[in-house]
Design a protein around this nucleic acid. Sequence first.
DNA 1: CCATTGTGTGAGCAATTACTCAGTAAGCGA
DNA 2: TCGCTTACTGAGTAATTGCTCACACAATGG
Lengths: 318, 318
Amino acid sequence: MIRNDPEPTLNDDAARAGWLYYVGGLTQDQIATELGVSRQRAQRLVSRAMAEGLIHVRLNHRIGNCLDLETRLTERFDLLRCRVAPSLGAGGDPVHSIAPSAATELERFLRMPEPQVIAFGTGRALRAMAELFNPTEAGHHRIVSLIGNIAPDGSATLYDVIRRVAEKLVAPYYPMPVPVISDTAEERAFYHHLRPVQAVVALVEQADVTFVGVGQMSDDAPLLVDGFVSREEMARFQRKGAAGEIASWVYDDNGQYIKSDRDAMVGALRIEPGRVQPVIGVAGGHGKTRAIRAALLGKILNGLVTDERTAAEILGMD
Amino acid sequence: MIRNDPEPTLNDDAARAGWLYYVGGLTQDQIATELGVSRQRAQRLVSRAMAEGLIHVRLNHRIGNCLDLETRLTERFDLLRCRVAPSLGAGGDPVHSIAPSAATELERFLRMPEPQVIAFGTGRALRAMAELFNPTEAGHHRIVSLIGNIAPDGSATLYDVIRRVAEKLVAPYYPMPVPVISDTAEERAFYHHLRPVQAVVALVEQADVTFVGVGQMSDDAPLLVDGFVSREEMARFQRKGAAGEIASWVYDDNGQYIKSDRDAMVGALRIEPGRVQPVIGVAGGHGKTRAIRAALLGKILNGLVTDERTAAEILGMD
DNA sequence: CCATTGTGTGAGCAATTACTCAGTAAGCGA
DNA sequence: TCGCTTACTGAGTAATTGCTCACACAATGG
């Protein structure tokens, strides 16, 4: 993606203003002088830089408490990777605090010189991570999706985590060209016998690292909200003790997958427990603690990026 | 390493406060409440987080790299002004990317309410800048040339950077009415004793800012192409280690001017190293990195407008 | 062609932040 | 224990920032 904007303006100025403000420590008045604009405009540029996500803020200090929680989570659940981000204030959305840490975690893998196959599930936190991470030259990796990219209405743009990541990296990416959820078992079987689909499946199975979101199975479940399960199915799952869901595969409080008629229609690939490569859950928030803990117990996940409060709650459930 | 600090460290609090402030967007009052400290303390924690480098701010934008290069060039060569423009695509002429930034830089000085004396050398990038800059009401400044405006064929229109600038500004301008290069030392001396010439020389010496191009001394040197040095002279310069040329004065890799019989014939004024007023080089391109770097090292220039790629090459030469 | 909508701008003001200062407690050597 | 230094604190205040408003200008549509 080579940009040839003849005019060196727009977000460029915003980025420059933001840089001068946050990195250079100039006052907005000074920036205004520097860029030759009014103070108000400088203010707007700075705030735009923030709003557009041009400015990234990262914490370069492991807060003792978070470090402690990481250690305890790692030991308790035998994790390969664990990141606990400080929570924001009481009303703060945990996604905001988790996403930068998740981005840092992703960058760890992107920096590796050996080509990696990186698989992604879906979810709000994952999406935010995709926006935030800092793209390095990483065209040698391959980006692959766990999730079908054909939404019930036929569109393919609903879950564009991998597209966003691949776009920023200029790396090859492999969406899963199947319906998120098929209408019949035959339809799913048909898709999964297609050669290109099988190629993607093979890639996912050899993925060097997998990033997934974790969904709760309460009445505000993402699966329900997005219309991928009906209210009746949801109730049935809940009666069977559903605790959470990863890539739309539902499991109970011990992290054992729950069998269902729906299994034969699900387009997403199921992550089998006990993988040796990292499978990193990116999720947090009060409603998700049960789902996350169950996935950790069942070894569906062997890595976690979450926030302080959620981490504490997970550990507090023992 | 198990940490047993029951008390959060000072820096822990600072990191947390900084996190809440920059990532969470809380106000310092809210942070104070959150952490249970006074507002003033919250403020101190936030500022400490910055001072200690606990918080990292990065720019997620093309020009982030440029700003970074600007900082590094400024520190490395102790510059007063530095502008690094984003390079255009692979095949792009660096002049196209440099000229707009140079124009912006020029405008900075034109905007000053106090009358400025602005001196110009010559060069392609400078010429492009003259076309691009946005003329403001700036008739109070004076525009003066470093370079003789009498070409070998007697015409006076060859180097019209200053005419173009002055015309757009409706400002008084002072060309240097001497030959670019005289045939004999006597001829040059004659011209330079004329009162009007001395007036221009005096103006140049008090110039508040000087914009110059930078010429390489390889076989495609502008000096050679334009016929201001012969092929033999060029070869002699090259044997003496010529790295570049500014206003047709040739210097070596340390930015020390190289003595030559030609000195007594050169009509242009020589910029002496270590001027306190800004002397801004406007140049870029692979062939010019050596020339630019040498001029920076020798303090002939204390300002630079260049493009991303050239900036990186200059820094990469250390 | 004119009205309308919406995007952007500068001014003014309220909220927020940074700084200075004087007071106080803690550490430390005599 | 006293006196000294050092570091930290809160209060007050100056500086900076963010927000709202009214207006200007350009694009859109009748």
